[in-house]
Design a protein around this nucleic acid. Structure first.
Lengths: 233, 233
DNA sequence: CGGGCAGTTGACCCCGCTCAAGCGCGGTGG
DNA sequence: CCACCGCGCTTGAGCGGGGTCAACTGCCCG
Protein backbone atom coordinates (compact mmCIF):
# COMPACT_ATOMS: atom_id res chain seq x y z
CA UNK A 1 0.00 0.00 0.00
CA UNK A 2 1.39 3.35 -0.95
CA UNK A 3 1.67 5.99 1.72
CA UNK A 4 -0.45 8.32 -0.34
CA UNK A 5 -3.37 5.92 -0.05
CA UNK A 6 -3.41 6.04 3.70
CA UNK A 7 -2.78 9.76 3.95
CA UNK A 8 -3.93 11.22 0.66
CA UNK A 9 -4.03 14.73 2.03
CA UNK A 10 -0.25 14.89 1.87
CA UNK A 11 -0.21 15.22 -1.87
CA UNK A 12 -1.17 18.77 -1.20
CA UNK A 13 2.36 19.80 -0.28
CA UNK A 14 3.89 18.82 -3.55
CA UNK A 15 1.25 19.82 -5.98
CA UNK A 16 -0.08 23.06 -4.59
CA UNK A 17 2.27 24.31 -1.91
CA UNK A 18 4.06 27.43 -2.99
CA UNK A 19 7.33 26.42 -1.38
CA UNK A 20 7.69 23.09 -3.12
CA UNK A 21 6.72 24.48 -6.49
CA UNK A 22 10.33 25.55 -6.64
CA UNK A 23 11.55 21.95 -6.63
CA UNK A 24 12.15 19.97 -9.80
CA UNK A 25 10.20 16.87 -10.76
CA UNK A 26 13.07 14.64 -9.59
CA UNK A 27 13.34 16.45 -6.29
CA UNK A 28 9.61 16.05 -5.71
CA UNK A 29 10.06 12.32 -6.18
CA UNK A 30 12.82 12.23 -3.60
CA UNK A 31 10.69 14.34 -1.29
CA UNK A 32 7.69 12.05 -1.46
CA UNK A 33 9.99 9.19 -0.58
CA UNK A 34 11.61 10.76 2.50
CA UNK A 35 8.70 12.77 3.89
CA UNK A 36 6.38 11.48 6.56
CA UNK A 37 2.90 12.73 7.36
CA UNK A 38 1.03 12.82 10.62
CA UNK A 39 -2.27 13.96 12.00
CA UNK A 40 -2.43 16.08 15.13
CA UNK A 41 -5.30 17.18 17.31
CA UNK A 42 -5.76 20.48 19.13
CA UNK A 43 -3.25 20.86 21.92
CA UNK A 44 -0.66 18.46 20.49
CA UNK A 45 2.91 19.68 20.66
CA UNK A 46 4.98 19.43 17.50
CA UNK A 47 8.21 20.48 19.17
CA UNK A 48 9.41 22.30 22.26
CA UNK A 49 11.54 25.42 22.42
CA UNK A 50 15.14 24.61 23.28
CA UNK A 51 15.12 21.27 21.44
CA UNK A 52 16.79 20.31 18.21
CA UNK A 53 14.18 19.44 15.66
CA UNK A 54 15.91 17.50 12.88
CA UNK A 55 13.55 18.60 10.15
CA UNK A 56 11.01 21.03 8.79
CA UNK A 57 7.24 20.82 8.58
CA UNK A 58 4.66 21.68 6.01
CA UNK A 59 1.01 22.28 6.92
CA UNK A 60 -1.44 20.48 4.65
CA UNK A 61 -4.35 21.18 6.96
CA UNK A 62 -5.06 22.95 10.25
CA UNK A 63 -3.62 25.83 12.26
CA UNK A 64 -0.44 25.90 14.30
CA UNK A 65 0.75 28.41 16.92
CA UNK A 66 4.36 29.25 17.64
CA UNK A 67 5.02 30.66 21.08
CA UNK A 68 7.72 31.31 23.61
CA UNK A 69 7.23 30.51 27.26
CA UNK A 70 7.91 33.46 29.51
CA UNK A 71 7.57 34.52 33.09
CA UNK A 72 5.26 32.22 35.08
CA UNK A 73 4.84 30.05 32.00
CA UNK A 74 2.92 32.80 30.23
CA UNK A 75 2.75 32.08 26.49
CA UNK A 76 3.85 34.77 24.09
CA UNK A 77 2.49 33.79 20.69
CA UNK A 78 4.88 34.90 17.98
CA UNK A 79 2.96 33.80 14.90
CA UNK A 80 0.71 31.19 13.31
CA UNK A 81 1.10 28.74 10.46
CA UNK A 82 -1.74 27.52 8.28
CA UNK A 83 -2.40 25.38 5.22
CA UNK A 84 0.44 25.79 2.75
CA UNK A 85 2.96 27.24 5.22
CA UNK A 86 6.27 25.66 6.06
CA UNK A 87 7.88 26.09 9.47
CA UNK A 88 10.79 24.85 11.51
CA UNK A 89 13.46 25.91 9.04
CA UNK A 90 14.68 28.79 11.17
CA UNK A 91 16.45 26.64 13.73
CA UNK A 92 17.80 24.27 11.07
CA UNK A 93 19.35 27.08 9.07
CA UNK A 94 20.59 29.13 12.01
CA UNK A 95 21.99 25.94 13.57
CA UNK A 96 20.34 26.78 16.87
CA UNK A 97 17.76 24.93 18.96
CA UNK A 98 14.12 25.78 18.30
CA UNK A 99 13.33 29.22 19.72
CA UNK A 100 9.59 28.58 20.00
CA UNK A 101 7.27 25.82 21.09
CA UNK A 102 4.89 24.74 18.36
CA UNK A 103 1.40 23.53 19.18
CA UNK A 104 -1.71 22.66 17.25
CA UNK A 105 -4.64 25.08 17.52
CA UNK A 106 -6.95 23.44 15.01
CA UNK A 107 -6.49 19.78 14.16
CA UNK A 108 -3.83 19.46 11.55
CA UNK A 109 -1.94 17.21 9.22
CA UNK A 110 1.70 17.99 8.87
CA UNK A 111 4.39 16.64 6.59
CA UNK A 112 7.84 16.22 8.03
CA UNK A 113 10.97 16.56 5.91
CA UNK A 114 14.30 15.57 7.49
CA UNK A 115 16.80 18.42 7.64
CA UNK A 116 19.45 16.48 5.71
CA UNK A 117 17.20 16.36 2.69
CA UNK A 118 15.94 19.90 3.17
CA UNK A 119 19.51 21.19 3.30
CA UNK A 120 20.39 19.25 0.15
CA UNK A 121 17.58 20.99 -1.68
CA UNK A 122 18.73 24.34 -0.35
CA UNK A 123 22.28 23.68 -1.50
CA UNK A 124 21.47 22.38 -4.95
CA UNK A 125 18.36 24.27 -6.02
CA UNK A 126 18.87 28.00 -6.25
CA UNK A 127 15.22 28.82 -6.82
CA UNK A 128 14.27 26.88 -3.75
CA UNK A 129 16.90 28.50 -1.55
CA UNK A 130 15.97 31.93 -2.87
CA UNK A 131 12.40 31.27 -1.89
CA UNK A 132 13.32 30.24 1.64
CA UNK A 133 15.59 33.26 1.89
CA UNK A 134 12.73 35.49 0.88
CA UNK A 135 10.46 33.80 3.39
CA UNK A 136 12.82 34.29 6.30
CA UNK A 137 13.41 37.91 5.33
CA UNK A 138 9.67 38.55 5.18
CA UNK A 139 9.24 36.99 8.61
CA UNK A 140 12.03 39.19 9.87
CA UNK A 141 10.24 42.25 8.60
CA UNK A 142 7.03 41.14 10.31
CA UNK A 143 8.88 40.56 13.55
CA UNK A 144 10.42 44.02 13.42
CA UNK A 145 7.02 45.55 12.91
CA UNK A 146 5.68 43.60 15.83
CA UNK A 147 8.47 44.83 18.09
CA UNK A 148 7.49 48.38 17.34
CA UNK A 149 3.79 47.80 17.82
CA UNK A 150 4.21 46.08 21.13
CA UNK A 151 6.63 48.74 22.34
CA UNK A 152 4.63 51.76 21.29
CA UNK A 153 0.95 50.93 20.99
CA UNK A 154 -1.39 50.40 23.90
CA UNK A 155 -3.36 47.24 24.52
CA UNK A 156 -6.55 48.51 22.89
CA UNK A 157 -4.71 49.45 19.69
CA UNK A 158 -2.86 46.14 19.60
CA UNK A 159 -6.01 44.08 20.13
CA UNK A 160 -7.72 45.86 17.24
CA UNK A 161 -4.67 45.18 15.09
CA UNK A 162 -4.59 41.49 15.99
CA UNK A 163 -8.28 41.07 15.16
CA UNK A 164 -7.68 42.56 11.72
CA UNK A 165 -4.61 40.41 11.26
CA UNK A 166 -6.52 37.25 12.14
CA UNK A 167 -9.18 38.34 9.71
CA UNK A 168 -6.61 38.79 6.93
CA UNK A 169 -4.81 35.53 7.63
CA UNK A 170 -7.68 33.17 8.29
CA UNK A 171 -10.73 34.86 6.88
CA UNK A 172 -14.28 34.20 8.02
CA UNK A 173 -16.92 31.53 7.53
CA UNK A 174 -20.20 32.24 5.73
CA UNK A 175 -21.57 33.89 8.88
CA UNK A 176 -18.67 36.29 9.08
CA UNK A 177 -17.12 34.53 12.07
CA UNK A 178 -13.32 34.43 12.24
CA UNK A 179 -12.00 31.10 10.98
CA UNK A 180 -9.71 30.74 13.96
CA UNK A 181 -10.92 29.82 17.41
CA UNK A 182 -8.78 31.07 20.26
CA UNK A 183 -9.25 31.16 24.01
CA UNK A 184 -9.18 34.56 25.65
CA UNK A 185 -5.88 33.49 27.18
CA UNK A 186 -4.41 32.77 23.75
CA UNK A 187 -5.61 36.11 22.46
CA UNK A 188 -3.89 37.72 25.44
CA UNK A 189 -0.77 35.76 24.54
CA UNK A 190 -0.68 37.32 21.08
CA UNK A 191 -1.46 40.86 22.16
CA UNK A 192 0.96 40.60 25.05
CA UNK A 193 -1.40 41.44 27.89
CA UNK A 194 -3.49 39.88 30.65
CA UNK A 195 -6.51 37.69 29.91
CA UNK A 196 -8.77 40.06 31.81
CA UNK A 197 -7.70 43.00 29.72
CA UNK A 198 -8.61 41.17 26.52
CA UNK A 199 -12.02 40.30 27.95
CA UNK A 200 -12.72 43.86 29.03
CA UNK A 201 -11.67 45.33 25.71
CA UNK A 202 -13.57 42.77 23.67
CA UNK A 203 -16.77 43.49 25.54
CA UNK A 204 -16.11 47.19 25.07
CA UNK A 205 -15.78 46.60 21.30
CA UNK A 206 -19.01 44.63 21.48
CA UNK A 207 -20.80 47.43 23.30
CA UNK A 208 -19.62 49.83 20.59
CA UNK A 209 -20.94 47.57 17.85
CA UNK A 210 -17.50 46.83 16.47
CA UNK A 211 -17.61 43.05 17.04
CA UNK A 212 -20.12 40.37 17.93
CA UNK A 213 -19.15 37.72 20.45
CA UNK A 214 -20.46 34.26 21.11
CA UNK A 215 -18.04 32.34 23.26
CA UNK A 216 -14.97 31.81 21.09
CA UNK A 217 -16.72 32.93 17.96
CA UNK A 218 -15.71 36.45 17.03
CA UNK A 219 -17.41 38.32 14.22
CA UNK A 220 -15.97 41.61 13.02
CA UNK A 221 -18.78 44.05 12.26
CA UNK A 222 -16.96 47.29 11.72
CA UNK A 223 -13.44 46.69 10.41
CA UNK A 224 -13.09 50.34 9.46
CA UNK A 225 -13.44 51.38 13.06
CA UNK A 226 -10.91 48.73 14.08
CA UNK A 227 -8.50 50.16 11.54
CA UNK A 228 -9.07 53.62 12.96
CA UNK A 229 -8.31 52.32 16.45
CA UNK A 230 -4.96 50.74 15.45
CA UNK A 231 -3.80 53.55 13.27
CA UNK A 232 -3.95 56.33 15.84
CA UNK A 233 -0.72 58.19 15.54
CA UNK B 1 45.62 55.61 -8.32
CA UNK B 2 43.93 52.55 -7.00
CA UNK B 3 40.80 52.92 -4.98
CA UNK B 4 42.42 51.12 -2.09
CA UNK B 5 44.93 53.93 -1.79
CA UNK B 6 42.32 56.59 -1.22
CA UNK B 7 40.18 54.49 1.09
CA UNK B 8 42.43 51.74 2.38
CA UNK B 9 40.05 50.85 5.19
CA UNK B 10 37.75 49.20 2.67
CA UNK B 11 40.09 46.31 2.15
CA UNK B 12 38.77 45.15 5.47
CA UNK B 13 35.54 43.84 3.97
CA UNK B 14 37.19 41.45 1.64
CA UNK B 15 40.02 40.20 3.70
CA UNK B 16 38.58 39.91 7.16
CA UNK B 17 34.83 40.20 6.96
CA UNK B 18 33.16 36.92 7.78
CA UNK B 19 30.48 37.34 5.13
CA UNK B 20 32.81 37.83 2.20
CA UNK B 21 35.11 35.03 3.22
CA UNK B 22 32.52 32.84 1.51
CA UNK B 23 33.22 34.40 -1.87
CA UNK B 24 35.79 32.98 -4.27
CA UNK B 25 38.89 34.83 -5.38
CA UNK B 26 37.23 35.77 -8.67
CA UNK B 27 34.13 37.01 -6.95
CA UNK B 28 36.20 39.16 -4.62
CA UNK B 29 37.78 40.74 -7.68
CA UNK B 30 34.37 41.54 -9.10
CA UNK B 31 33.29 42.87 -5.74
CA UNK B 32 36.20 45.27 -5.39
CA UNK B 33 35.34 46.57 -8.82
CA UNK B 34 31.65 47.25 -8.20
CA UNK B 35 31.68 48.29 -4.56
CA UNK B 36 31.87 51.87 -3.42
CA UNK B 37 32.97 53.13 -0.03
CA UNK B 38 31.91 56.20 1.90
CA UNK B 39 32.56 57.86 5.20
CA UNK B 40 29.70 58.98 7.42
CA UNK B 41 29.56 61.09 10.55
CA UNK B 42 27.29 60.71 13.55
CA UNK B 43 23.70 61.48 12.65
CA UNK B 44 24.03 60.78 8.92
CA UNK B 45 21.21 58.77 7.41
CA UNK B 46 22.14 55.79 5.24
CA UNK B 47 18.58 55.08 4.14
CA UNK B 48 15.02 55.80 5.21
CA UNK B 49 12.30 53.29 6.03
CA UNK B 50 9.86 52.91 3.20
CA UNK B 51 12.45 53.50 0.49
CA UNK B 52 13.98 51.05 -1.93
CA UNK B 53 17.68 50.77 -1.28
CA UNK B 54 19.25 49.16 -4.34
CA UNK B 55 22.10 47.51 -2.49
CA UNK B 56 23.60 46.20 0.70
CA UNK B 57 26.15 47.69 3.05
CA UNK B 58 29.13 46.38 4.94
CA UNK B 59 30.53 48.18 7.97
CA UNK B 60 34.30 48.55 7.93
CA UNK B 61 34.28 50.97 10.83
CA UNK B 62 31.78 52.62 13.18
CA UNK B 63 28.37 51.86 14.63
CA UNK B 64 24.98 52.01 12.93
CA UNK B 65 21.48 52.00 14.41
CA UNK B 66 18.41 50.58 12.71
CA UNK B 67 15.12 51.99 13.93
CA UNK B 68 11.50 52.36 13.04
CA UNK B 69 9.69 55.62 13.51
CA UNK B 70 6.55 55.28 15.57
CA UNK B 71 3.93 57.39 17.24
CA UNK B 72 4.95 61.06 17.51
CA UNK B 73 8.17 60.24 15.67
CA UNK B 74 9.45 58.18 18.59
CA UNK B 75 12.33 55.98 17.50
CA UNK B 76 12.16 52.27 18.22
CA UNK B 77 15.68 50.97 17.79
CA UNK B 78 15.56 47.42 16.46
CA UNK B 79 19.27 46.58 16.38
CA UNK B 80 22.78 47.83 15.74
CA UNK B 81 25.46 47.01 13.20
CA UNK B 82 29.17 47.27 13.83
CA UNK B 83 32.51 46.55 12.16
CA UNK B 84 32.24 43.41 10.11
CA UNK B 85 28.44 43.35 9.90
CA UNK B 86 26.47 43.52 6.69
CA UNK B 87 23.01 45.08 6.55
CA UNK B 88 20.34 46.07 4.10
CA UNK B 89 19.92 42.63 2.58
CA UNK B 90 16.55 42.01 4.22
CA UNK B 91 14.61 44.35 1.98
CA UNK B 92 16.53 43.25 -1.13
CA UNK B 93 15.76 39.60 -0.52
CA UNK B 94 12.19 40.04 0.65
CA UNK B 95 11.59 42.40 -2.26
CA UNK B 96 10.05 44.96 0.05
CA UNK B 97 11.00 48.56 0.86
CA UNK B 98 13.34 49.07 3.79
CA UNK B 99 11.47 48.48 7.05
CA UNK B 100 13.88 50.55 9.16
CA UNK B 101 15.70 53.82 8.95
CA UNK B 102 19.45 53.44 9.28
CA UNK B 103 21.56 56.12 10.91
CA UNK B 104 25.14 56.47 12.03
CA UNK B 105 25.79 56.47 15.78
CA UNK B 106 29.57 56.53 15.70
CA UNK B 107 31.35 57.81 12.61
CA UNK B 108 31.59 55.05 10.11
CA UNK B 109 32.90 53.89 6.78
CA UNK B 110 30.55 51.73 4.82
CA UNK B 111 30.96 49.76 1.63
CA UNK B 112 28.04 49.65 -0.75
CA UNK B 113 27.36 46.69 -3.00
CA UNK B 114 24.65 47.02 -5.66
CA UNK B 115 21.87 44.52 -5.29
CA UNK B 116 22.29 43.17 -8.81
CA UNK B 117 25.77 41.96 -7.94
CA UNK B 118 24.77 40.80 -4.48
CA UNK B 119 21.95 38.72 -5.93
CA UNK B 120 24.30 37.21 -8.50
CA UNK B 121 26.56 36.03 -5.72
CA UNK B 122 23.59 34.64 -3.84
CA UNK B 123 22.43 32.75 -6.89
CA UNK B 124 25.77 31.33 -7.91
CA UNK B 125 27.64 30.75 -4.68
CA UNK B 126 25.96 28.26 -2.38
CA UNK B 127 28.28 28.88 0.55
CA UNK B 128 27.59 32.57 0.36
CA UNK B 129 23.83 32.16 0.15
CA UNK B 130 23.89 29.64 3.01
CA UNK B 131 25.71 32.17 5.11
CA UNK B 132 23.20 34.92 4.40
CA UNK B 133 20.41 32.47 5.09
CA UNK B 134 21.94 31.64 8.43
CA UNK B 135 22.35 35.32 9.20
CA UNK B 136 18.73 36.17 8.51
CA UNK B 137 17.54 33.19 10.54
CA UNK B 138 19.70 34.24 13.48
CA UNK B 139 18.29 37.75 13.27
CA UNK B 140 14.83 36.27 13.21
CA UNK B 141 15.54 34.34 16.38
CA UNK B 142 16.84 37.50 18.05
CA UNK B 143 13.75 39.42 16.99
CA UNK B 144 11.47 36.72 18.42
CA UNK B 145 13.32 36.87 21.70
CA UNK B 146 12.98 40.62 21.75
CA UNK B 147 9.23 40.41 21.18
CA UNK B 148 8.89 38.23 24.26
CA UNK B 149 11.11 40.41 26.40
CA UNK B 150 9.32 43.59 25.50
CA UNK B 151 5.92 41.99 26.02
CA UNK B 152 6.63 40.32 29.33
CA UNK B 153 9.47 42.04 31.14
CA UNK B 154 9.16 45.38 32.88
CA UNK B 155 11.31 48.38 32.06
CA UNK B 156 13.83 47.76 34.82
CA UNK B 157 14.46 44.20 33.64
CA UNK B 158 14.70 45.27 30.01
CA UNK B 159 17.15 48.07 30.76
CA UNK B 160 19.41 45.66 32.62
CA UNK B 161 19.23 43.29 29.68
CA UNK B 162 20.09 46.01 27.16
CA UNK B 163 23.10 47.11 29.19
CA UNK B 164 24.41 43.54 29.20
CA UNK B 165 23.70 43.21 25.50
CA UNK B 166 25.58 46.41 24.71
CA UNK B 167 28.42 45.09 26.81
CA UNK B 168 28.50 41.82 24.86
CA UNK B 169 28.23 43.46 21.45
CA UNK B 170 30.53 46.42 21.83
CA UNK B 171 32.69 45.66 24.85
CA UNK B 172 34.42 48.27 26.99
CA UNK B 173 37.48 50.46 26.78
CA UNK B 174 40.42 50.09 29.13
CA UNK B 175 38.50 51.95 31.85
CA UNK B 176 35.56 49.57 31.63
CA UNK B 177 33.34 52.11 29.92
CA UNK B 178 30.91 50.79 27.29
CA UNK B 179 32.28 51.25 23.79
CA UNK B 180 29.03 52.71 22.56
CA UNK B 181 27.86 56.19 23.37
CA UNK B 182 24.10 56.69 23.37
CA UNK B 183 21.88 59.53 24.47
CA UNK B 184 19.33 58.73 27.14
CA UNK B 185 16.72 59.14 24.46
CA UNK B 186 18.37 56.50 22.29
CA UNK B 187 18.60 54.14 25.23
CA UNK B 188 14.89 54.68 25.80
CA UNK B 189 14.35 53.90 22.11
CA UNK B 190 15.97 50.50 22.52
CA UNK B 191 14.29 49.58 25.77
CA UNK B 192 10.96 50.83 24.51
CA UNK B 193 10.17 53.34 27.25
CA UNK B 194 10.29 57.04 28.04
CA UNK B 195 13.56 58.92 28.39
CA UNK B 196 12.75 59.88 31.97
CA UNK B 197 12.27 56.25 32.94
CA UNK B 198 15.71 55.34 31.65
CA UNK B 199 17.24 58.22 33.60
CA UNK B 200 15.50 57.26 36.82
CA UNK B 201 16.45 53.61 36.54
CA UNK B 202 20.04 54.35 35.60
CA UNK B 203 20.49 56.55 38.63
CA UNK B 204 18.88 53.86 40.73
CA UNK B 205 21.42 51.35 39.36
CA UNK B 206 24.12 53.88 40.17
CA UNK B 207 22.88 54.30 43.73
CA UNK B 208 22.97 50.51 44.15
CA UNK B 209 26.55 50.35 42.89
CA UNK B 210 25.63 48.43 39.75
CA UNK B 211 26.85 51.03 37.27
CA UNK B 212 28.92 54.20 37.22
CA UNK B 213 27.73 57.11 35.16
CA UNK B 214 29.53 60.08 33.70
CA UNK B 215 27.39 61.78 31.13
CA UNK B 216 27.12 59.30 28.25
CA UNK B 217 29.83 57.10 29.62
CA UNK B 218 28.39 54.03 31.28
CA UNK B 219 30.54 51.62 33.21
CA UNK B 220 29.09 48.31 34.34
CA UNK B 221 30.34 47.49 37.83
CA UNK B 222 28.25 44.51 38.82
CA UNK B 223 27.19 42.52 35.77
CA UNK B 224 26.11 39.61 37.94
CA UNK B 225 23.51 41.76 39.61
CA UNK B 226 22.33 43.01 36.22
CA UNK B 227 21.96 39.42 35.14
CA UNK B 228 19.94 38.70 38.25
CA UNK B 229 17.66 41.64 37.49
CA UNK B 230 16.90 40.52 33.92
CA UNK B 231 16.49 36.86 34.73
CA UNK B 232 13.75 37.20 37.32
CA UNK B 233 11.18 34.60 36.48
C1' DC C 1 -25.63 16.48 39.85
C1' DG C 2 -21.10 17.97 40.81
C1' DG C 3 -16.39 19.18 39.39
C1' DG C 4 -13.55 21.84 36.55
C1' DC C 5 -12.21 25.11 33.48
C1' DA C 6 -13.00 29.22 30.50
C1' DG C 7 -14.95 33.42 30.81
C1' DT C 8 -16.47 37.64 33.26
C1' DT C 9 -16.65 41.40 36.48
C1' DG C 10 -15.23 44.39 40.26
C1' DA C 11 -11.77 46.43 43.38
C1' DC C 12 -7.39 47.89 44.04
C1' DC C 13 -3.04 49.72 43.23
C1' DC C 14 1.46 50.21 41.16
C1' DC C 15 4.40 50.88 37.19
C1' DG C 16 5.62 53.93 34.11
C1' DC C 17 4.12 57.88 31.14
C1' DT C 18 3.45 62.87 30.82
C1' DC C 19 4.10 67.44 31.96
C1' DA C 20 6.75 70.95 33.90
C1' DA C 21 10.58 73.04 36.03
C1' DG C 22 15.34 73.25 36.98
C1' DC C 23 20.29 71.92 36.14
C1' DG C 24 24.83 71.68 33.83
C1' DC C 25 27.85 71.41 30.21
C1' DG C 26 29.63 72.83 25.80
C1' DG C 27 29.56 75.89 21.99
C1' DT C 28 29.32 80.57 20.17
C1' DG C 29 29.76 85.28 19.89
C1' DG C 30 30.81 89.65 21.80
C1' DC D 1 37.59 85.24 28.71
C1' DC D 2 33.10 85.53 30.11
C1' DA D 3 28.06 85.66 29.25
C1' DC D 4 24.58 83.66 27.10
C1' DC D 5 21.99 80.16 24.92
C1' DG D 6 20.38 75.66 23.92
C1' DC D 7 20.27 70.97 24.24
C1' DG D 8 20.56 66.96 26.87
C1' DC D 9 19.95 65.47 31.38
C1' DT D 10 17.63 65.23 35.85
C1' DT D 11 14.06 65.44 39.26
C1' DG D 12 9.40 65.94 41.09
C1' DA D 13 4.36 65.64 40.95
C1' DG D 14 0.38 63.59 39.31
C1' DC D 15 -2.41 60.30 37.20
C1' DG D 16 -4.18 56.66 34.36
C1' DG D 17 -3.53 52.26 31.85
C1' DG D 18 -3.47 47.93 32.74
C1' DG D 19 -1.90 44.09 35.81
C1' DT D 20 -3.28 41.30 39.85
C1' DC D 21 -6.33 39.14 42.95
C1' DA D 22 -10.62 37.38 44.17
C1' DA D 23 -15.25 36.10 43.56
C1' DC D 24 -18.79 34.63 40.64
C1' DT D 25 -21.03 32.67 36.42
C1' DG D 26 -21.92 29.47 32.88
C1' DC D 27 -20.94 25.73 30.02
C1' DC D 28 -19.20 21.11 29.23
C1' DC D 29 -18.53 16.57 30.52
C1' DG D 30 -18.34 12.71 33.23
Amino acid sequence: MKKSDSLPVCDFCFKYNETFRHLTKDEIDILSYVKSCNNYKRGDTVYHEGNRTGGIYCVSEGIIKHYKTGIDGKEQIIRFSKKGDVFGFRSILSEEPACTTTKVIKKASLCYIPSTQFLKFIRTNTNFSMFILKLSCRELGDANQYIMDIAQKNVRERLAEILLLLNDNFGTDKNGVLNISLTREELAGIVGTATESVIRLLSEFKKDGIVKLNRRKIKLIDTKRLKKITDVY
